[in-house]
Design a protein around this nucleic acid. Structure first.
Length: 464
RNA sequence: GGCGGGAUAGCAAAGUGGCCAUGCAGUUGAUUGCAAAUCAAUCUACCUCGGUUCGACUCCGGGUCCCGCCUCCA
């Protein structure tokens, strides 16, 4: 019985899809004006695991993860670079796809871009005006901004648990007198000269920040769908505004269940672009493998804060190596015993709001069993190993060949032939019982980051 | 100021009203020429003060501290 924490009710709820056996999920992806940082990596990995597990549980999952490819930051960055905004966004979209692949993140079912949904966005803004939820404001250029009238939507604040008067009391934004209410937010932004723009009934302009997600999600998944996810920082105002827009426009419930993953922190401070203390995924990929980053992310429950440090990535590396070491040298089959008790434990962990740390503990228990069994009863060990691999795969882990994984370096490293030559030389020394020479060679390899293991009369190696 | 989350062993991180989380690190033993990997054993816990209970880290109340949102952010 799957339970998921719902940000709307702030409780774990028994999950029930709108349509039996099918789940429609929308996750806010990136605004593509820069490289992915670890916070983006967390969203990518978390919802990838959610999708994989839901599919493993038998659901057909329609997973939509959007790309916001037009907004103020994109325009500013493109201007700074002196390039067309679309050149900028397509570059970072490619980079994002590369990063996602490194992290073992499967492509979503659909990945809509805001610029491809312009007519739907405009239609939704028009609907909101027609229904009395939005109003226009003239600018000096004669074209118009369109604002959402927050006071017209009864449920405003239901996701973030905020009341309009509290929000006003805490008002920190400079008042824009074109707005009727400081909390009103822009749906359509009139273009200034030279800015990218689209024709609309209110003149040339571009969508405000939140409307694109309302348009894309309802277009791709329908007016009412199962799950909407994203980083915690999107809960307010982005998701709150999405609800206001979508429900006002469609007259239907927008989303049943909202999921928000916790922040990534660095030195106990939130990692964010505005604080400029973020690590990009590719920076980290120079030092650690994508799968190590993935493990690091999954070692904490998705709603908890995740503190970044090299030490924790090192721990992730060692822990993953343990699992791969366990599988190394075993010819593991795809099929496994579906009645293995570990499977039920794994399911219970994951059914409890995607408790990946506990799910990982199940994997380590299996690894212990495999290691215990492998010398006495190889077939029993293989059976357990098959279960281990199968469950790990649900988390997007242990998908690589163990041998290759253990011998591959982070950031794509060189050499190869030298290693075998040195190992041969060392083994010759060992046959001659020249231990000091043998140890010298081993130290030499160790300095190269190569660890040797003498096993069953053979010497195998891996990277430390 | 308004709203919300959290305090678990050296580090990280789950969880449970009474019985092993787990990973990393440490200690001891097995194995090894020595290591590594692995196995076995083992040391370190549940912020504080009360209450409920036969029994609480786990439930309830007070306190202290930390963090997040209320502004662009995944």
């Amino acid at each position: 019985m799957l339970k998921i924490h719902n940000s709307l009710t702030k409780k774990k709820e028994i999950f029930k899809s709108i349509e039996p056996g099918k789940i429609k999920m929308y996750v806010c992806g990136m605004t593509v004006y820069d490289l992915c940082h670890l916070g983006h990596a967390r969203v990518l990995v978390v919802f990838d695991v959610v999708t994989r597990y839901l599919r493993y549980s038998g659901y057909e999952v329609d997973y939509v993860r959007n790309i916001t490819d037009i907004d103020d930051k994109i325009i500013n960055r493109a201007n700074e670079n002196g390039e067309d905004f679309s050149a900028l966004t397509s570059r970072f979209i490619t980079a994002m796809h590369e990063d996602a692949a490194e992290l073992g993140v499967l492509p979503p079912s659909d990945e809509p871009k805001a610029t491809a949904y312009m007519s739907d966005i405009i239609a939704m803004v028009q609907t909101l005006i027609d229904k009395g939820y939005a109003y226009t404001a003239q600018t000096e250029q004669g074209n118009g901004d369109v604002y959402y009238d927050v006071s017209a939507f009864e449920g405003y604040g239901k996701l973030s648990g905020k009341k309009l008067e509290d929000l006003r009391a805490g008002e920190r934004v400079a008042v824009d007198e074109r707005k009727d209410d400081p909390l009103d937010f822009v749906l359509w932004k009139a273009a200034k000269p030279g800015e990218p723009s689209w024709d609309s009934p209110w003149g040339k302009g571009r969508p405000g920040w939140h409307i694109e997600c309302s348009a894309m999600s309802t277009c791709c998944l329908g007016n009412h769908f199962d799950i909407h996810g994203g980083g915690q920082d999107l809960q307010f105002p982005h998701h709150e505004n999405e609800i206001a827009q979508s429900e006002a426009a469609t007259g239907e419930t927008f989303v049943n269940l909202w999921m928000h993953n916790g922040f990534v922190r660095i030195n106990d401070e939130k990692m964010s672009k505005s604080l400029n203390n973020f690590f990009t995924v590719r920076e980290i990929l120079k030092l650690y493998k994508g799968e190590e980053i993935r493990y690091f992310v999954l070692a904490s429950q998705y709603r908890s804060p995740l503190n970044y440090s090299d030490q924790l990535l090192d721990t992730a590396r060692t822990a993953l190596s343990r699992l791969y070491n366990t599988l190394r040298g075993l010819d593991v089959q795809d099929a496994c015993d579906e009645n293995d008790p570990a499977i039920e434990k794994f399911r219970q962990a994951m059914d409890d709001d995607f408790n990946t740390p506990e799910a990982l503990a199940v994997l380590f228990d299996l690894a212990s069993q495999v290691n215990r069994l492998r010398d006495e009863d190889n077939s029993a060990a293989l059976e357990k190993a098959a279960v281990l691999k199968k469950l790990a795969n649900v988390l997007g882990l242990l998908e690589q060949d163990a041998e290759q994984y253990l011998q591959a370096g982070a950031g794509g490293s060189e050499d190869g032939a030298d290693i075998d030559a040195l190992i041969t030389a060392r083994n010759t020394a060992r046959e001659n019982k020249d231990w000091s020479e043998a140890d010298r060679i081993r130290d030499e390899l160790d300095a190269m980051g190569i660890v040797l293991e003498d096993k069953d009369g053979k010497t195998i190696w891996r990277r430390s």
